[in-house]
């Protein structure tokens, strides 16, 4: 494997991890807002219990994507920085409002509902805007004026394909987060919350699949080159659909937990659906190559200095190795320790 392929695969992996973790994070914020009046079910508590310790770590991943991109592909920075100035600024502002209000809501009890509402809504707008980076890299919305690339942002916002992407982002956000929260309430032994989140996931799954097909249609209409490449990876797409069926059906398998009278094996559902996304985004990522921004930047033209790449690669490996125990410890404390999961009193 060449250095450029290793580098772009690492970026792809960061994007994948952030898209899953970010979806769950922003979705949990939305559910925490939606079920705020639903005191008895503790659905809001479950969402907050997940969000409070994890949002900062999720946020690091978006920095990781950005830093990884300009470190490995500095040649892409110029084009990406130029065309993304406006959308990325909007995303940053929304992320800021969202995170700040999420934290504020824990400190000002009297205004909690308003603060959670602001953070929930701005959080849902983030994935909607974030996914627009994808159609921008497909090249149709970039023009060159006086030798400088410019984004035709208004054209993007009135194109129907933008809305296909947005619909997919929002439905993924809601589907992935409801799945994970279903699993989280399942291990926490909260049948009421489990029931709610399982129901949301049951509704969300087929909708999400529908939007995924709509997305492929949008790519077909807007970016023929990408569509041709994606279809070449039909095997991966098929596997993706297959894992969707497995994961989705796990919501109806017989429960292993005798305390809960509701069906479903949410842990398997989460794993199945994550694998579904893994295959789908591998098919997409592979089809996107060699372009980072079509047709202006390829992974070859944007690549960093080979010595810098080697130094970066090894320091990534070392840093990950050093941090793994930290992540494991974190996981055990917040995702497995029943003392944390079962103390449902205050909620946060």
């Amino acid at each position: 494997m060449s250095d450029t392929i290793i580098a772009i695969s690492m970026i792809w992996m960061f994007v994948f991890v952030y898209s899953i973790a970010g979806s769950i994070d922003f979705g949990a914020g939305y559910w925490s807002m939606k079920y705020i009046k639903h005191k008895r079910s503790k659905a809001t508590n479950i969402a907050n219990r997940y969000l409070s310790p994890s949002w900062e770590i999720t946020n690091v991943f978006i920095v990781m994507v950005v830093v990884g991109l300009f470190n490995f592909f500095p040649g892409a920075t110029y084009t990406l920085g130029t065309v993304l100035l406006l959308p990325a600024s909007l995303i940053l502002l929304l992320i800021t409002i969202r995170s700040a209000f999420l934290v504020f809501s824990h400190s000002a009890a009297k205004y909690k509902n308003t603060l959670i509402m602001v953070s929930g809504i701005s959080g849902l707008l983030v994935p909607a805007l974030l996914i627009l980076v994808l159609p921008i890299t497909h090249g149709n919305f970039i023009e060159i004026v006086d030798g400088v690339e410019r984004l035709k942002f208004a054209r993007l916002l009135v194109s129907w394909s933008a809305y296909a992407f947005i619909a997919f982002a929002v439905s993924s956000t809601l589907f992935l987060s409801s799945l994970l929260l279903a699993d989280y309430s399942h291990v926490s032994g909260q049948p009421e919350a489990y029931k709610i989140y399982r129901r949301d996931a049951v509704i969300g799954g087929p909708l999400n699949l529908l939007f995924a097909f709509l997305l492929i249609l949008a790519i077909y209409r807007e970016a023929g080159w990408l569509y041709t490449n994606i279809i070449k990876n039909w095997g991966w797409l098929l596997l993706s659909v297959l894992f969707f069926l497995v994961g989705y059906s796990a919501l109806f398998w017989k429960s292993a937990n005798k305390d809960l009278s509701i069906d479903g094996r949410p842990r398997f559902a989460v794993i199945g659906i994550v694998i579904q996304y893994l295959f789908a985004s591998a098919a997409y990522g592979k089809a996107h190559l060699p372009y980072i921004v079509y047709p202006f930047v390829t992974i070859e033209s944007g690549f960093t200095h080979p010595d810098t790449f080697r130094a970066l690669f090894w320091s990534y490996m070392v840093s990950f190795a050093v941090l793994v125990p930290g992540f494991v410890y974190f996981w055990r404390i917040f995702m497995k320790d029943t003392r944390y999961l079962k103390q449902m009193g205050g909620g946060d």
Partner: peptide
């Protein structure tokens, strides 16, 4: 990256380690 793309291009090639 948004405001100083020319600078970040050099950063990415030379002084990427600290960011990473």
């Amino acid at each position: 990256s948004l405001l100083w793309p020319g600078f970040m291009e050099v950063v990415g090639k030379v002084i990427a380690l600290p960011f990473q």
